[in-house]
Design a protein around this nucleic acid. Structure first.
Lengths: 142, 142
DNA sequence: TTGCGTGCAAAGGTTTTGCATGGCA
DNA sequence: TGCCATGCAAAACCTTTGCACGCAA
């Protein structure tokens, strides 16, 4: 969809602050609004368009992942830690449609899905952007 | 998230027309706008709020599935054919992030994902609402 | 100095909501 | 008749865009 090379060219103050904030929240989902609020709390408000544009760049650079969990919920961004880059430690997401809980799964067996999709269907799965929907254990038992 | 019993109570004309339209498009993704347009073409315009509210009910009843493929794209609805209810013929969706193509997969092997998630993680997967993101064969080769 | 990044405001588009009216049972 | 469904308009919401200014290189 978006192929333009959109890498970082300038090292602005806003970008630095944003990066520090995101790095401090590995495995946590952050919305554009959260970032704006953080800046406001720091006494240095930021324009929302800057947040969206900078986030888009970070996604293009692979430093951030973007998840769309629900319609009419703001998009979630998550910092991609170094660990998640290797074959080990790939993180899958499960979203409970009943209670809304989000579960992070670190499971090697799920990597076979990717192999199967690739081998039998030629589809290269992006585990970082894929979300499994269903029901969590508690809700299923209830 | 939404637990209210929202079944069909009245059999209105709008609902009937909508159902006939959707039944005629199995395996096809339809947006709220598409439905509105169809009604207009039939010479009997419908209120958009009616479409959204009726769609929501149909989803609750399990007659329709709702997919959110992209941020800032309208939600897609797909009629759930009788065949998709059984264990056989469950349909998985793969969305190419590069060209935007949507692929329907009918693959028994993928059902093992559900078994694994249930057995090892207690998570009950809803294959009808889950979308795999990645790259299709053509884009991957390019 | 060049041109990318920022900020503000406004627009864009989808979806939801309030309220009065209409229609099914 | 009672209650749900409908329709219209307006609101809400997130996100994008236009344009002038500021700042990094």
């Amino acid at each position: 969809m978006k192929n333009t090379e959109n890498g970082a060219k300038y090292r602005t103050k806003q970008r630095e602050i944003m990066m520090r904030y995101l790095e401090g929240k590995p495995g946590v989902h952050v919305t554009a609004g959260d970032v704006c609020e953080y800046f406001k709390e720091q006494g240095a408000p930021i324009g929302q368009s800057t947040v969206y544009r900078q986030m888009e760049k970070l996604v293009d650079e692979g430093l951030l992942n973007k998840y769309i969990l629900d319609a009419n919920s703001p998009a979630c961004f998550e910092y991609v830690s170094r660990d998640s880059h290797g074959t080990e430690g790939v993180c899958f997401h499960c979203k409970c449609e009943k209670c809304g809980k989000l579960i992070h799964l670190h499971c090697d067996e799920l990597k076979e899905i990717a192999n199967h999709l690739k081998g039998d269907h030629g589809f290269v799965l992006d585990p970082l952007r894929t979300v499994f929907y269903g029901m969590c254990e508690e809700c299923a038992n209830a």
